[in-house]
Design a protein around this nucleic acid. Structure first.
Lengths: 346, 346
DNA sequence: CTGAAAGCGCTTACAG
DNA sequence: CTGAAAGCGCTTACAG
């Protein structure tokens, strides 16, 4: 890689003059400037950004702490983040949070050493441990937490309106005449708790009874536990007529379980998901679900973070600002997996 | 952020002594060293890695050019990459290749400016344009291309054994008695062409006739074209009894189309996918598919790249080394979407 | 054992 | 218009 001093030598000018010419600063003769520009182009010169980062104290780099890169929902969030960062000329260093945690290492060490200007926390299926919350706390740069809220609410947050989405989903089922509705929950994460709360609000609003056994809490995410649990619930003679699943993945497993038990969907059992992932429309039957907008969430999170960085740079708000909590609206997408409640046998 | 000079001032030692103490170099008194270490810990000092990068000429940073972050297959690949990079103490800068291309900007500019040591190219649903191939060519650092081969085969490559996978899938159907088998192809990408070739090899091996109309080539990826095309093929009175789909996503759409036409799976029509994504096991019926190991692919790609960087650093092979092409084995996973060929009506 | 100085690749006042 | 010098934050020979 050619350096500035290489270029300046070739052009027989001082290193300062070469710098001025290449950065478009005034104070260089027209012909000199052109000569330098040409040589730089010819040698494919690229100024070393790390130098600028050192000099300015801004690395123009954001850390993205990823937990489930393979999760399509997380992937869309990251896509939104990258697009906002790209617009603002920032780059992203992606770390696999779970990997660092596994190896018992300081998660943020490398990000601190690389002087990132801020951190974006992608959702995790596991709640953060106390020691990592402590590490985050001692990280004196802006942090935005995405999708899953952290206990304490100490950080800026962008997520979906989970409670409202589950409320609407449940209302939809109630409108269809369902009276006994179950929930396939995942209460380890904040979105799971919010969605169950939305479910309960709708049930209570209509004075409908809830049974504990209709609301199982799934314990493990990356397994077929949801499928097994749904089968146990649905294949018993005594099952709800509709199920609000924590997300599309659980809903898919519930549908598979229903098929397994010989139940027809939606004639015998209605199922509703959350997320509207790429496959939701192609399940059999196609899935009614609460659509989230992960790309928008990711973009907003990045924009919020960049705003905080800007604030910090300009010295406003020397005191830590009050954390913001932004909830992006969701939308119920009605497809074929929900239908009128079956008429009870006479 | 405290700097080395801050620490050295506090400890009343020279900046060089502080450096030696913190990097564990010899030549510092026991008590002095401890004092410095303590102060550094107390102030949460982190050496600026960018300085080291400048001094050593190695940024310890890899670029990951992502095209479809939201694609779970790509996500798994990235996960594998990150794990290998993490082990080797490298960090990754992720760029969204499609985003850069859209904005007509130089894709690699920012990566060159940040002095990345190598580049990992994630798969894209679109083949690379000539101008971007040219840009890659002028990028004088090791590059490893993943999953999708580039025309010319000029770069190191890690992918799946696509042709073999499709061959095995087709053999499986032939063993089940199927004679007229269709393929839902995607020929814009190299994996699509390789899979079709594997399909054809099996058909030819058994002397089975192939009909052009049974082998439609899907043109658009992110749409329901596969579903529409499959419906047209399957709902006509004159349909194959089995379908080898380019991947799980197309297979899922084919299954939806079959349901739509009132066909039973696998009694009337067998469908087979490629990838074994998370949802494959939960489709109805569960999907027979060729399982790939994207995490392994990603890890191998990163290891290969790191090896090239090592080679380059140690000056071996001053001439560009011959590109390697590594194919990770695949495995047919038989589930419920394939079954014996229907007996023809008498 | 400790410190002063050079140097990594650049930008930016400051002289000429 | 052009160049010499300081400085960003560090490491590493080289003196003392």
């Amino acid at each position: 890689m050619v350096s500035l001093s290489d270029i300046s030598e070739i052009c027989d000018v001082s290193i300062g003059t070469a710098s001025k010419a290449l950065t478009g600063k005034p104070g260089v003769g027209q012909s000199t400037r052109e000569r330098i520009l040409n040589v730089a182009r010819q040698y494919n010169y690229r100024a070393n950004r790390m130098v600028h980062a050192m000099q300015s104290g801004q690395s123009m780099t954001i850390g993205i702490a990823c937990n489930n890169c393979q999760d399509p929902f997380t992937g869309e969030i990251v896509k939104g983040m990258l697009s906002a960062l790209y617009t603002a000329q920032y780059d992203a260093i992606t770390i696999s949070w779970d990997l660092c945690v596994e190896s018992q290492e300081s998660v943020l060490r490398t990000l601190a050493e690389r002087r990132i200007d801020g951190l974006l926390m992608c959702p995790s299926a596991k709640p953060p441990s106390a020691s990592y919350l402590a590490e985050l706390n001692s990280f004196h740069r802006p942090i935005v937490v995405v999708d899953q809220e952290f206990p304490g609410g100490a950080y800026d947050f962008v997520g979906s309106d989970d409670a409202e989405g589950a409320f609407q989903a449940t209302e939809h089922l109630i409108q269809l005449g369902h009276r006994r509705i179950g929930a396939l929950s995942f209460l380890q994460v904040s979105t799971g708790r919010a969605r169950l709360a939305g479910f309960q609000r709708a049930m209570i609003r209509h004075g409908l009874a809830m049974k504990e056994r209709d609301m199982p809490d799934i314990q493990t995410y990356e397994s077929d536990e949801a499928s097994v649990t749904a089968a146990r619930l649905l294949c018993s003679g005594d099952a709800p007529t509709a199920l609000v699943a924590f997300n599309d993945f659980f809903a898919m497993q519930a549908i598979a379980a229903a098929h397994h038990c010989g139940l027809r969907i939606p004639e015998d059992i209605s199922v509703i998901g959350f997320a509207d992932l790429g496959y939701a429309a192609y399940l059999h039957p196609s899935l009614t679900t609460v659509a989230q907008t992960p790309v928008v969430i990711g973009r907003r999170a990045a924009e919020l973070l960049l705003g905080r960085i800007e604030q910090k740079k300009s010295g406003e708000n020397a005191a830590a600002p009050t954390p913001v909590c932004e909830r992006i609206p969701v939308e119920l997408v009605v497809r074929k997996s929900t239908g009128p409640a079956p008429t009870p046998l006479p």
